[in-house]
């Protein structure tokens, strides 16, 4: 008995919903992102590798793994080699705290939301180390820009993520997802006018939070309106400039998993995670919702042009931070009413 349980546990870690599933799902998400982005620009996108180019991200990954791995002479080789591994490991760790196959995540404890936010901050620090360690002018500038960017989006991101936590009275992601399911079924049992009005008010305030969180996730993922740290047209590749071969492959895969992790966070904080009406199983609901979030992100990516770093920080501090404070005020009011 114990050994079968152990095998199931190990299988969960390694295959589903663990490493193997996450890596392939991340590659799939990159394909969705690229294809959708290309269609929005009236292009076709990857086409000839597999069915409609679905294998393109995997082909890119294998190609990069086979390529020469250059470490510049001037670079700090230890930092230079460690950062890709860290940037690959952190989003994977985050994904284990996100509920995928049921309302409970694989690792879940009171306060894991704070751990996740901390891990996201840690990625920024490692990106800065990557830029600094490669000792390239462009890399250093890119790393500095990343940390500057973090100063402006970190606060609205934390505040937006804490909103559902206040309403759910739980600082764990699984608790928040469970609360979302619970409040829905409570409402269906006893639909009064007051609870309907409160529900609509809650939903609209949380929609605002979703908007704020999405903007911050765009900045976290370094996607187009905020891709200032890796701006290819001005500072070449930003902090990634010196990376090649296996390390670049790890960085790209890590970036894809980060895309999935960000959309998984958006899903579980605001869209009810893997919960949904019965005929579709929870894991499929989770996939549908995260793909929707990926599409939102690539839509915004196609819609905007890059901001300058000072414009972005200005805009974030003058508009997004007050907006998020207003949002948290409304949430508090709602919590008192409940």
């Amino acid at each position: 008995m114990v050994s079968t349980e152990l095998i199931i546990k190990i299988g969960q870690i390694l295959v589903f919903p663990g490493f193997l599933f996450l890596i392939f799902y991340a590659l799939f998400a990159e394909w969705v992102d690229r294809k959708f982005f290309a269609r929005l620009q009236n292009r076709i996108g990857p086409l000839h590798t597999g069915w409609k180019g679905i294998l393109q991200p995997l082909a890119d990954l294998i190609k990069l793994l086979a390529k020469e791995d250059i470490t510049p002479e001037a670079a700090d080789s230890v930092v230079f080699a460690t950062v890709p591994i860290i940037l690959f490991a952190i989003p994977l760790t985050v994904m284990f705290m996100v509920p995928i196959i049921g309302p409970k995540a694989y690792i879940s404890f009171e306060g894991d939301l704070i751990v996740i936010l901390f891990l996201f901050t840690l990625t920024v620090l490692s990106v800065f180390m990557a830029g600094w360690g490669s000792l390239n002018r462009f890399g250093t500038v890119g790393g500095l820009r990343t940390s500057l960017q973090m100063l402006s989006y970190e606060i609205p991101m934390g505040v937006a993520a804490v909103g559902p936590a206040i309403l759910a009275k739980s600082l764990s992601l699984s608790g928040i997802v469970a609360w979302q399911g619970r409040s829905m079924s409570l409402f269906l049992e006893n639909p009064t006018e007051f609870s309907l009005a409160l529900g609509i008010a809650k939903a609209s305030v949380l929609a605002l939070g979703f908007g704020i969180f999405t903007i911050c996730m765009l900045a976290e993922l370094e996607k187009v309106p905020f891709d200032i740290p890796e701006a290819e047209t001005e500072i070449v590749g930003g902090w990634q400039v010196e990376y090649s071969g296996k390390k670049l492959a790890l960085l790209r895969l890590g970036g894809d998993i980060k895309l999935v992790a960000a959309s998984a966070l958006m899903t579980s904080l605001f869209l009810g995670g893997p919960l949904g009406p019965w005929p579709i199983p929870p894991a499929l609901w989770f996939l549908l919702k995260t793909i929707l979030c990926v599409m939102i992100i690539s839509n915004l990516r196609a819609l905007f042009a890059r901001y300058r770093i000072d414009q972005m920080i200005n805009w974030m501090w003058k508009n997004l931070v007050p907006l998020s404070l207003l949002y948290i005020l409304a949430i508090e009011l709602m919590a008192v009413l409940m």
Binding site: R43, P46, L47, H48, D60, E232, V236, G237, V241, L248
Partner: peptide, 20 residues
């Protein structure tokens, strides 16, 4: 959009380290 070389998986990169 009219020609779109990304169909063949080719993208223009900024850094020579990322290019083939």
């Amino acid at each position: 959009p009219r020609f779109d070389i990304e169909r063949f998986g080719a993208l223009l990169k900024g850094s020579p380290r990322h290019a083939d």
